[in-house]
Design a protein around this nucleic acid. Structure first.
Lengths: 199, 199
DNA sequence: GAATCTCATTAAACTGGTTTAATAAAAGTG
DNA sequence: CACTTTTATTAAACCAGTTTAATGAGATTC
């Protein structure tokens, strides 16, 4: 009989928060109670265009992709996978209808916290406010590296970089979504791959 | 004789901070004392590659552009103009040498706060921590809209959008930097403009 | 005010993408 | 298993950008 160290999803979230800054146990406990667990099936959506975005999310396992439709074409901005926070921030902050989809590309477990709860906790606790600042800072830096890549690399470099940095994506997400993320058409990515394969 | 309401640069900064959240007067006063005023001439740099980035900055007037060199070519990521906070965040946060330049494209006044001072103030004051979080959130959203544009628009749309949103840039910054910001060569931008002019 | 720099435009040849459409292969589904 | 749906590849025609190099037009400097 095997002894398994069982990590609950909520413990993942707790560890994640503590990775940013120290938070007293009672405060953290109360904060964690504000999160609601959601089990999403492949294809389920958290947000669709026109909706208000009243939650902040955390992916425990699975993959959420963030995209919009431009003249019928999916346009992928980001993939959120294991142990990251996300939401549609512009809509969340401004409380205006979203222009985006947040959709599970596979079965996915997320925790959701209501904006009002999140804001109250920031107001009540300096420590959680700090966690908020630092996680936002991290998100900003990630977003910055995205800009860096979009701006400065050729498609080929971006493809190779993604292949190296997030190889799991190529297993779990269809290639046409990756093409979109790289700013290519599926045809374009296919040609690029062919070109590389030959050399 | 004219009566002029004179706004000092420091008052700009004060207003900016208060635009995010309430901060008690004494706390704010102390915070403002941590900022050092810098008068930059056109071409002066705040950061060059290889340097550590130990300050957070605020542009009062003027324009700082944020770029790196890729095989000799300037690659512009952002222009920071009046009343915005900025720094080279990845280098600032990780305390690793910068890969970028921060350079004045015209005579520019900035305020600078040392990282240690900034961090202390966040630690001491929940209100300033909150200011930190909200300003970071705003920066993230701006960066996000940049990704949105880089990712989803054609060069033509991006050009027209920039022309509309930040017409001042076209007056104060050479066109080849704008081309770089749009992800084009100077030649490419020139052709694009020609094409548009004709139609 | 002549000489020098800096910046924008144009031309020509080239290229890595696009679109559209057909085909092939793989993955669900009853 | 056969059927349908989804995803990836290929081909062909096209185009918006690239590079390189020459020219032009404004600023700057002495």
């Amino acid at each position: 009989m095997k002894t398994v160290v069982h990590t609950t999803p909520l413990e993942n979230l707790k560890e994640k928060i503590l990775s940013y800054t120290l938070v007293d146990d009672e405060v953290l406990k109360e904060q964690l109670q504000s999160y609601q667990k959601l089990n999403l099936k492949k294809g389920d959506t958290l947000v669709i265009p026109g909706q208000l975005v009243q939650h902040f999310y955390y992916v425990v396992t699975g993959c959420i992709y963030y995209y919009k439709l431009d003249e019928g074409a999916q346009n992928v901005l980001e993939f959120y996978t294991d142990d990251v926070f996300f939401t549609d921030l512009p809509a969340y902050v401004k409380e205006t209808p979203s222009n985006y989809y947040l959709k599970a590309s596979e079965d996915t477990i997320v925790y959701a916290i209501k904006k009002t709860d999140a804001e109250n906790s920031f107001k009540k606790s300096h420590q959680l406010e700090r966690f908020g600042r630092l996680s936002m800072q991290e998100a900003f830096i990630k977003s910055f590296t995205r800009i860096e890549r979009l701006n400065s690399r050729t498609n080929e470099e971006r493809y190779l970089r993604l292949l190296k940095k997030r190889p799991d994506l190529f297993q779990r997400v269809p290639q046409y979504l990756i093409a979109s993320y790289l700013g290519l058409t599926p045809v374009g990515l296919s040609k690029l791959r062919k070109r590389l394969g030959k050399s």
